[in-house]
Design a protein around this nucleic acid. Structure first.
Lengths: 144, 144
DNA sequence: TTTAATGCAAAGAATTTGCAAGCAA
DNA sequence: TTGCTTGCAAATTCTTTGCATTAAA
């Protein structure tokens, strides 16, 4: 991520919606911000073992609904999470499931075409590039 | 889907790999072919209630590994499946999770750029367009 | 003081696994 | 006949839910 999430704006944003500023809530977001990559619920919980995993599920789900976080269901069955701050695409290893960000000009034209050709009201898109990460292809070659 | 899956080639393809031609295996593929849309394991099973759901899971998973089927983990938490026959993209309703195919020229250039800019060996990609399907926005307006 | 949020445990849903029996080759 | 495949049930994993307690505002 190049941009940073603005924690100052978060507090009024939540309060306007009647949501409370709890230590757990803030810690979950700060922990995701501090972790490189795209953590799963379980990875967040292992950084915050004193917070109940149900609380982590509830909050992550709420942050996704509020569009503060993005849910990435790709790779290996477990959803991964990231801040929804700058538009970018994802490169995913089909062996280990790791996700890396990838900057590329937005494919807005595809959305326009889809709005014309389908009966959906399209408003966003996601692009995932699949391949093998460096770690996996090096390990694969070593075990030959 | 415009193209059709070639069941004749399937049999030697499986046999070459030491896999057997069982009635369950063929029925699962024929059932997916006969269903419009992108069925879940549960939807396949409800068309084939006499086949054990474990058998359906095992076979669908195997067909995905053999690249006969594509797994679509988008929409609502449940993976959906389709034949891997022609390249196309997907339009997904973020309310009900329904998936529709969408034809658009392949974005091969993005793969080339990713191969240059990342340390992944990229070989494929998926694009999902998100929006609201006709059924959902009409129902939403009716309940206003 | 009010009531949203937490934590725990139980429940639920989805998927995988172990193993005896069946059947494709 | 060999051993892959099926079907069943149990186990596992992931996620959600109910409810008493805690604590934010």
């Amino acid at each position: 991520m190049t941009n940073e999430f603005d924690f100052d704006k978060l507090i009024p944003f939540l309060k306007e919606r009647g949501l409370r500023i709890t230590p757990q809530r803030m810690l979950i977001l700060r922990t995701i911000a501090s972790m490189t990559g795209h953590p799963t619920v379980d990875e967040i919980h292992s950084q915050l073992p004193t917070i109940s995993i149900a609380t982590i599920y509830n909050n992550v789900k709420m942050f996704v609904k509020l569009k503060i976080l993005n849910e990435l269901p790709y790779g290996n069955g477990l959803s991964k999470y990231e801040f929804n701050i700058d538009e970018h695409y994802h490169v995913i290893c089909h062996i280990c499931g790791i996700i890396e960000d990838f900057k590329y000009p937005l494919l807005s034209e595809v959305e326009d075409v889809a709005n014309k050709l389908t009966k959906f009201r399209v408003h966003s898109h996601q692009l995932e590039l699949y391949g093998v990460c460096k770690n996996c292809y090096e390990n694969k070659e070593m075990t030959k």
